[in-house]
Design a protein around this nucleic acid. Structure first.
Length: 393
DNA sequence: GAGAAATGGATCGAGGGTGA
DNA sequence: TCACCCTCGATCCATTTCTC
């Protein structure tokens, strides 16, 4: 155990050195003082421990794995790795050489490079540079199976265009319904870093890989034609939900009022007094199903006013921007302004460090710069549940 | 042996992951 | 959600190696 600890420490030093990369300009040796690894080595009261460590050192020295500077009192002063016997050292400590791991990683990049999605192409490019610099590959935790499965899953998810349950996606990929959920955190972290998912809480859902089937909730003043049936929402007091399949079957939507309003949070959706509006619950970040539904509405009703009502925080602004980009509909912000912040000043929350960073990123956006500057200056944000929305057309 | 250059170690802060 | 832990990168200082 002591022998392996010692050799592992020396190999760590070697593998993180310029000599390992071949960029050293001077000859190097890789040495360590034994008390750095075994603090009790120089403790006069630990005679047995001292003898045990010395035996281990002598044993490694006789195998030519290390060379040792001994003092006259038989104390090991400096232990140096014998790089001429590295292969034997790796075998002895049962450790895969870093070079071999790097070669394996490069072979995985090569294997997926040609057909990989753009996100992975970018990721591979960065990681190749990191390997050249002898830095660790991001999102690789030494488990080769986890890593390759994650790469396959990211590619699959990026190329997926229709809604699929996460367990079905997992079966399709790995023949194991739970595998995808096990590696989901790594996949999402990779996609967040190398993709465009600012403000998105659920990246998998955004890519149509969902834990439960998407439902779109609507209420208000509109007629919805489902196959041959027309549903008059104005005659329904509450809301109505459509599954993915039902949304496919909607042939057109006739908005009877003059506004279509999307709402970020469920509580606000239920408490929103729609009056003459046609109201849609988005459920945080919207996915392709919701976006297709919105496009359907817009195609049938291009002259209506489209508004989005969300939290007055970075996430809320990101969702609004994303909604516009992905649907091509120019949604206007509803009650996401300084006046609302001032009106509900007793309900505001303070900004976290992360909130500040995300808001500062959005400061360059002319449209929101005033409200964001106000939020940063007054250290405030507002959840939409606090905002009573009694609006008139 | 002294000085210069190269390299490594220690420390700190930021960011991300994990488990309660 | 939060606290804790780990990893990574940047920086500064110490140590090692080389050259004269």
């Amino acid at each position: 155990m002591k022998k392996k600890s010692l050799l592992n420490k020396l190999v760590d030093k070697y593998e993180s050195s310029k000599s390992f990369v071949g960029k050293n300009r001077q000859n190097q040796s890789f040495s360590i003082r034994p008390e750095k690894i075994f603090p009790k080595y120089l403790d006069d009261e630990e005679v047995d421990f001292f003898a045990e460590v010395n035996d281990s050192i002598k044993d490694l020295e006789s195998n030519e794995f290390i060379s040792v500077d001994w003092t006259k009192g038989c104390i090991a002063k400096k232990i140096s790795l014998n790089v001429n016997h590295l292969n034997d050292v790796y075998k002895y400590i049962d450790r895969q050489p870093r070079k071999q791991t790097q070669e394996w990683l490069l072979s995985v990049f090569d294997k997926y490079q040609n057909n990989a999605c753009e996100l992975l192409q970018n990721y591979f490019k960065v990681q190749r540079c990191r390997i050249e610099e002898n830095q660790n590959v991001e999102f690789f935790n030494s488990n080769e199976k986890d890593f390759e499965d994650s790469i396959r899953a990211v590619d699959y998810i990026q190329k997926n265009t229709t809604e699929i349950l996460i367990r079905n996606a997992s079966l399709a990929l790995f023949k194991d319904s739970k595998r995808l959920e096990n590696i989901a955190s790594t996949i999402e972290a990779l996609m967040r870093k190398y993709g465009d998912y600012d403000g998105c809480d659920d990246i998998l859902a955004e890519c149509n890989v969902v834990r439960t089937p998407t439902q779109v909730l609507v209420k208000g003043n509109a007629n919805i034609c489902l196959d041959t049936q027309i549903i008059d929402l104005s005659k329904i007091e509450g809301d109505i939900g459509f599954s993915t399949k039902s949304i496919d079957d909607i042939t057109f939507v006739e908005v009877l009022g003059c506004r279509v309003v999307t709402i970020e949070n469920l509580t606000s959706f239920y408490t929103y007094e729609n009056n003459n509006d046609f109201v849609i619950y988005l459920g945080g970040f919207h996915n392709a199903v919701k976006r297709e539904f919105i496009k359907k509405i817009y195609n049938s009703n291009p002259s209506k006013t489209y508004m989005h009502f969300g939290d007055i925080d970075a996430g809320g602004f990101y969702i609004l921007k994303h909604l516009r980009t992905k649907t091509g509909v120019n949604f206007l912000p509803m009650k996401m302004d300084i006046e609302t912040l001032q009106l509900y000043k007793d309900c505001v929350k303070t900004l976290s460090t992360e909130d500040r960073k995300r808001l500062e990123k959005l400061l360059g956006d002319n449209e929101f710069k005033d409200v964001i500057a106000y939020m940063l200056e007054n250290d405030c944000k507002l959840e939409q549940e606090n905002v009573t929305c009694l609006t008139q057309c």
